[in-house]
């Protein structure tokens, strides 16, 4: 193995490192630009777009915070995301568990219907969804959460189904002998064994729901961070200072989320890719 590893100091590594470093600076520049300009006054930005801040000007943040009604939209998005993820995990894990443990034809048909839904992109069914949502009075926060449960469950059921099959049946059988009911067995014995896959699905779905734009646009029209950001863009198009500040505060939560849970996100993607 030792022969495989190149030395850190080899000249090629240094050159490659240099190239990657320069590239990553270019790559990262848009985000640096946003942060720098959020601390400058708009008039200053228009005059010297690439300049540096003279002082820490916080006016942009105050404006963005108030105009976007940030606390309100943040809490609303947070609520939708949490309720959506918890709901998807609860319903899908129970569903997948039953589907994996019963071997009847009906369960196979139900499972096939769920997996078929994986093929249908949301964009194809968005118009009927929007129309149905208004017919059923679902154009509100509980309504959109319900929709996320439905839209998120095919993937989740597919992933849980594969995972549940690898959980040994003996555990459940011995629990049943000890007199445990179906729900007790599932919540106390099976669910803890699914921890890794739950973490993966939770992280992926949380990113998806938090960042989703199209469904809230069709159903809610206002009230999530993404929608507030888009509306802010319409109002303060030329106010670059306020724009950059609003972009910073609306991307901060998700960046923190990513930095803390990076391990799970990357594991989830890698696992999904290797399986697919």
């Amino acid at each position: 193995m030792a022969t495989l590893k190149r030395k850190h100091t080899s000249p090629t590594t240094k050159v490659v490192f240099g190239i990657v470093l320069i590239f990553s600076i270019f790559f990262f520049y848009p985000m640096i630009y946003v942060i720098i300009n959020s601390l400058r006054e708009s008039a200053d930005i228009t005059r010297f777009p690439t300049g540096l801040p003279n002082s820490f000007y916080m006016g942009n943040y105050i404006k963005a915070w108030n105009e976007m009604e940030f606390p309100k939209v943040f809490l609303n998005t947070f609520f939708i995301t949490t309720a959506g993820v918890v709901g998807i995990i609860l319903t899908s894990s129970m569903c997948a568990y039953m589907l994996a443990r019963t071997t009847t034809k009906t369960s196979w048909i139900i499972y096939s219907i769920f997996t078929f839904a994986l093929v249908i992109p949301f964009q194809i069914i968005m118009v009927p969804i929007a129309v149905l949502a208004s017919d059923f009075n679902l154009t509100n926060t509980p309504g959109i959460i319900l929709m996320y449960w439905g839209l998120g469950c095919p993937t989740a059921i597919f992933m849980f189904h594969g995972f549940v099959k690898s959980v040994p049946r003996e555990l459940e059988e011995s629990a049943a002998i000890d007199g445990a009911g179906r729900f007790y067995t599932f919540f106390v014995i099976v669910l803890p064994l699914l921890k890794t896959i739950i973490a993966t699905i939770a992280v992926i779905d949380a990113l998806w729901i938090w960042n989703d734009f199209l469904l809230p646009l069709l159903v809610l029209r206002e009230g999530t961070i993404q929608l507030a950001q888009m509306r802010f863009n319409g109002q303060f198009l030329k106010d670059y200072g306020a724009m950059t500040a609003s972009l910073t505060i609306s991307s901060l939560p998700i960046i923190l989320f990513y930095l803390f849970l990076q391990k799970y996100i990357i594991k989830g993607i890698a696992a999904g890719a290797v399986k697919g």
Binding site: S24, F27, F28, P30, M31, Y33, V34, L207, W210, N211, D212, F213, I225, Q226, Q229, M230, N233, Y240, M243, T244, L247, S250, S251, I254, I255, F257, Y258, L259, Q262, I265, I266
Partner: peptide
């Protein structure tokens, strides 16, 4: 971490950053 970062941002934020 750097190369993955744009992926966690929503498309709307990415679009508005680049638009500017």
């Amino acid at each position: 971490t750097i190369f993955f970062l744009p992926n966690v941002l929503s498309m709307i934020i990415v679009a508005l950053i680049w638009k500017m």
